[in-house]
Amino acid sequence: MNLNPIENLALALLGGAVLLGLYRLLRGPSAVDRLVAADTLSVVITGAIVVVAWLFASALYLDVALVYGVLAFVGTVAMARALEGGRS
């Protein structure tokens, strides 16, 4: 598929967003920073999977994005619950 410059720029920005999120996840000074980075990264990746589905022109991949969005939320809430109960 031929991409025009606007789409190339958009894809580059999306990749940059993933890299910056990963930087905060690897570098994050404290554990909660990593949690926040993982949460934001999951949303960014949901968008990225939708874009990849468009690149491949196949609607099958949208299901992956949907399942991913739903279960990343479940994981975030579970970690938050554990964090709340973790205080002594």
Binding site: E7, L9, L13, L14, A17, L20, R24, T40, V44, G47
Partner: peptide, 15 residues
């Protein structure tokens, strides 16, 4: 698409 990815990038930059 460009607007959305630009905001995603800015959000990650803010992160």
């Amino acid at each position: 698409l460009l607007l959305g990815s630009a905001f995603l990038f800015l959000g990650a930059l803010g992160l």
